[in-house]
Nucleic acid binder design. Structure first.
Lengths: 354, 354
DNA sequence: TTGTAAGCGTTATCAC
DNA sequence: GTGATAACGCTTACAA
C-alpha cells in the first residue's frame, strides 16, 4: 500500500473517506509522500514563501501522483477565507439577472472564486433572508443586484464583509456601488423617437421601487423638454418591468383613445408585452406605432419585429461588479467603468409618415 | 465588555473577528453563557440527543442574546457535510436552465441546503471543470443538468457523491436519473399539426448532442407514421436549440423551395428564431405557415403571435431533481414523478385552409 | 443526560 | 528555508 491510512482518533464522522469511494487525499499525505512537512506543502500551494526547487518538485509530483486537491472547507476554517462570493439576486430565471449572473460567474471563475447565487424573490424579506444565508456561509464578499433593501442595512453589513451594490448610488466604507446611466439611455431612446418625427410618445414605466425605473422616466421627460414637447402625464402608463404589465399598459393606452404614434417602454420585457398587446388590437409595429425598449437582452433581437432598444450590457454590469469585488478583496480601491448606453436601432421604429 | 475576547493562540488569521465589525459569536461562547458544555449546545442545534428542558431554554436564550449563528464552514469540516448541493448547468443565463435552477433553488432552500451553480459553457471540458470545482468544494451531492459528459464518467463520480442526472436515462449506485417524456411531447405537437390538416410538416431539429433532441425528432417521425404520412428527410433541418439556428434553418427551408405548411421546432427558442425568419421573408404565421415549439418557456407566451408549444414544466424538472437528491441524502430511494407533457395551443397554429 | 477531548484538513506563528 | 505546533469552530465517541 502507498502509505498507512491516516490515524484516526475516536471522534469525527466517517473516516475522511468519500462516501462510496477511495479516501480523500490530504495535504498531510502529500507531505509524507514528498518527505517534507505539511507547512512546506501549504507554502507551495499558496506561494507564501520560498522553497527549494527540489522539494517543490517532489511535492508537485506527489500532488499529481496522489491526485490531491486542497479541501476548501478546511482552508476556509483555517484561513478565514472561503473563496466564495455571495450574490443576492431577484430571481435566477429572469433574462435580465441571468445575464448579469453570467458575467459575474465568468469573471470570478478566472480568479478562483466561486459565486453563490441566492434569490430574493422580489421582496425585501426575501432579500434579507438571502443576505443572511450568505453571511452565515462566510462568503468573502457580497454582490447585491437587488433593489429593495434599505441603504442603511447594506451599509451596516458592509462592515462585516466587502460589498458591491449594483443599480444604485451608494457610498460607505467597504462598500462600492455601480450603476448604469439610465437617464442617458432613456434620453437616447426618446430622442431617437423624436428624431423620427414622433411627438406623441407614450411611456410605459417600470417598477417605481427601482431607481432605474425612475431614472428612465426622468430621461424620457428630459428629452421631451429638450425638444419643446409638452410632457403629458396621461401618456405615462404604470407597469412593473414584466411582459404582462406591458400588455396591460398598452391596453389601457389604447382604451384611453389618446393619440400617440410611439411608445418607449422602460425595459425590453415590457416592450415585448406591449408588442403583443398592439398585435392583438391590430396596431402594426412599426407602421402604426413605433416601439423602443431598454436593456437589449437576447429576446429583443428575435422579437417580431426585432426591437429597437438601448443597450446596456447587463453581462458587463455583472462582470464589472465582480471585478470591483476582486479589487476590494485585494485591498485596492475599486476602479471600474461601465460602457455608456447605446441606441440599437432595429425594426420596431420608423420615421413618422405624414 | 460582554465577555473576554476568545483566547487565541499563535496561529490563525485575523482573530475570528468579522473584517470590520464585531467578533463572530462561537458555539463555545454560547455554551459558556448558558453554563453548559459545547457538546450540549451542539446537540441542541442538531437534535442529536435529548437535553433537559431548562438547559435547552438557557442555551436558546443565549443563542438569541448573542446572535449566534453556526459556522457552516466549521460544521462542514467537522461533520463532513456542507449542506450545499452542486449543480452543473450549461449556462446560467438561458431561459431554459434558468427555470430549472429556480426550481432547484426553491426546493433545496426549504431543506436548509444551498445550491451552488456552475456553468459548463456548452462543452464537455467545461462541464468536467465545473464538476471538479464542485467536488473540490465538498458539496453533499451533485445535480447535473448537462448533456455532454460521458455516462461512465458520471457513474464514476457517483461513487463519491450522490448524483442526480437530468435529461437522460442512466442507472447506477448512488445515481438517479430523471427525464422528460420528450418523445410523447413531440408526438403531441406533431399530431396537433396533423389534426389541423397539415401534411407537409417541416422539423427544425435540436442539438444532436442532446438526447432530448433525438427523442423529439423520433416523436415527430412516429406521429407522421401514425398518420400515414411519408417521412421526408429534406424537411428536417439541423439546428442547435438557439434562436439564430432557427432563423437559419427557416431560411434554408425557404430557399429549398420545398412545399410545407407547418413547422415543428425542437424547442421554443428555435421556434422564435424561425418566426423571425418567416416574418423577414413575408411568410405569415399562422396564415401561411403554422408553427409549434417545445418547452413553454416564458417567452413563448409573449411572442408575436403567441406560440403554440408543448409544456414541460422545466421548473418542476428542477424542483423534482432536488427532491430526488434530498431523498438520496436521507438514504431513501428516490421516488419522483414528472408531469406528463401537455400541448398548449396558442395562436401560431391554425387549421389548414384549402 | 451531560461533559471531556480528539479530530476534521488547512494555515500561520514561532523557533530553528 | 523549513518544521513543529496551535488554532480555526464544530461534531461525536466515549466516559461518567
Amino acid at each position: 500500500m502507498p502509505s498507512s491510512p491516516p490515524r484516526r482518533g475516536k471522534a469525527g464522522p466517517a473516516p475522511s473517506t468519500t462516501p462510496g469511494g477511495e479516501a480523500a487525499v490530504t495535504l498531510h499525505q502529500v507531505a509524507q509522500a514528498a518527505g517534507v512537512s505539511a507547512s512546506t506543502v501549504s507554502r507551495i500551494l499558496n506561494g507564501t514563501a520560498k522553497v527549494h526547487a527540489d522539494k517543490m518538485q517532489a511535492v508537485q509530483a506527489a500532488i499529481v501522483a496522489l491526485g490531491f486537491r486542497p479541501n476548501p472547507v478546511a482552508r476556509g476554517l483555517a484561513g478565514g477565507r472561503t473563496l466564495s462570493i455571495g450574490v443576492v439576486t431577484q430571481t435566477i430565471s429572469s433574462p435580465f439577472y441571468g445575464e448579469a449572473l453570467h458575467g459575474i460567474e465568468d469573471e470570478l471563475e478566472r480568479a478562483g472564486y466561486i459565486p453563490i447565487f441566492v434569490s430574493g424573490h422580489w421582496h425585501e424579506a426575501g432579500e434579507r433572508k438571502a443576505l443572511e444565508a450568505l453571511l452565515s456561509r462566510r462568503v468573502d464578499g457580497i454582490i447585491v443586484l437587488a433593489g429593495r433593501l434599505p441603504d442603511a442595512e447594506l451599509q451596516a453589513h458592509a462592515q462585516q464583509v466587502p460589498m458591491v451594490v449594483v443599480g444604485r448610488e451608494l457610498g460607505g466604507p467597504r462598500l462600492f456601488s455601480l450603476n448604469f446611466d439610465n437617464l442617458t439611455g432613456a434620453l437616447l431612446a426618446t430622442r431617437h423617437l423624436i428624431e423620427c418625427g414622433h411627438r406623441r410618445i407614450a411611456f410605459i414605466a417600470g417598477d417605481p421601487a427601482h431607481q432605474d425605473a425612475l431614472d428612465r422616466q426622468a430621461g424620457y421627460r428630459r428629452a421631451l423638454e429638450e425638444a419643446g414637447i409638452a410632457y403629458d402625464p396621461a401618456l405615462v402608463m404604470p407597469a412593473d418591468f414584466t411582459e404582462s404589465s406591458g400588455l396591460l399598459a398598452v391596453n389601457r393606452l389604447l382604451d384611453s383613445r389618446l393619440a400617440f404614434t410611439a411608445i418607449f417602454a422602460a425595459n425590453d420585457q415590457t416592450a415585448i408585452g406591449a408588442a403583443l398587446g398592439l398585435y392583438r388590437r391590430n396596431v402594426r409595429v412599426p407602421d402604426d406605432v413605433s416601439l423602443v425598449g431598454f436593456d437589449d437582452l437576447a429576446p429583443a433581437k428575435f422579437s417580431v419585429p426585432p426591437l429597437t432598444t438601448v443597450r446596456q450590457s447587463v453581462y458587463e454590469m455583472g462582470s464589472q461588479s465582480a471585478v470591483a469585488m476582486l479589487q476590494m478583496l485585494r485591498g485596492e480601491a475599486p476602479q471600474v467603468v461601465l460602457p455608456a448606453p447605446q441606441l440599437v436601432p432595429r425594426e420596431s421604429t420608423r420615421r413618422l409618415q405624414r
